[in-house]
Amino acid sequence: DRIFMTRTEALEFLLKAHQTAVDKIGHPSHKQTPADHAAIEALDRLLLDVRARRVDQFQINASAAQIIVTD
Rank of each mutant, 00 (worst) to 15 (best):
T6P: 04
N61S: 15
F13I: 06
I25Y: 07
H18N: 02
A42N: 12
L14H: 00
G26V: 10
A64C: 05
T70M: 14
D56T: 12
A39D: 08
L43W: 02
L43Y: 02
Q57I: 14
A65C: 08
R51I: 14
V55T: 07
H27K: 11
E9Q: 14
A17D: 00
I68G: 01
R7L: 13
L48T: 14
K24Y: 06
E12T: 09
V22R: 04
A17T: 06
I67C: 01
H30V: 04
H37E: 12
D56W: 13
K16D: 07
Q57R: 14
N61K: 02
A62W: 07
E41A: 12
D71M: 09
T70G: 06
A39L: 15
I68K: 05
Q19K: 12
R51C: 07
V22S: 06
P34S: 08
R7S: 04
I68L: 07
A42W: 14
E41P: 02
A64Q: 13
H27T: 08
L47E: 01
I25T: 06
N61I: 07
I68D: 02
R54M: 07
A17G: 02
R53A: 13
H30E: 06
A62N: 13
V55E: 02
E12W: 06
S29K: 03
A64P: 08
N61G: 14
K24S: 06
I3H: 05
K31H: 15
D1M: 04
H37F: 15
P34V: 09
A39Y: 15
A17E: 08
R7H: 09
S63P: 07
P34R: 04
K16N: 08
S63F: 14
D71R: 05
R2S: 09
D36Q: 06
Q19F: 06
V50E: 00
D49T: 02
F4M: 09
V55L: 05
A35N: 12
P34W: 11
D36R: 02
E12R: 11
A39N: 12
M5A: 01
A38N: 08
R2M: 10
H37S: 10
L48W: 08
A65S: 10
R53E: 14
L46T: 02
E41T: 07
R7K: 04
E12S: 15
T20W: 09
A65E: 11
H30T: 04
L43K: 00
Q66W: 15
F13M: 12
Q32K: 10
A38R: 09
I3P: 01
P34I: 10
L14W: 01
D44A: 11
H30Q: 03
A52Y: 14
L43F: 04
I25V: 10
E9A: 08
R2E: 07
L15P: 00
R7N: 05
P28S: 08
L43S: 01
T33D: 12
M5C: 02
V69Y: 02
A52M: 13
K16H: 09
A38L: 12
S29G: 13
L14Y: 00
A52H: 14
T70H: 08
D1W: 04
T70C: 07
M5W: 02
R7V: 14
D44M: 14
R51V: 10
D1Y: 09
A39H: 12
H18A: 04
H18W: 11
K16C: 06
A42P: 01
L14D: 00
A42S: 10
F4E: 09
V55Q: 06
F58I: 03
A21K: 03
V69P: 01
Q19A: 12
V22E: 04
Q59C: 05
L47K: 02
R45T: 07
I3W: 10
S29A: 04
T70L: 12
S63L: 13
L48V: 11
Q19W: 07
V55A: 04
H37A: 11
K16Y: 09
A64I: 09
V55D: 01
A10C: 03
M5G: 00
I68S: 06
H27F: 06
D23L: 07
I25C: 03
D49R: 03
L48H: 15
L47W: 09
L43V: 03
A52T: 11
R54S: 05
L14Q: 00
K31A: 14
A62P: 15
H30R: 02
K31M: 15
H27G: 07
L46C: 02
I68A: 04
L14M: 01
A52N: 14
A17N: 04
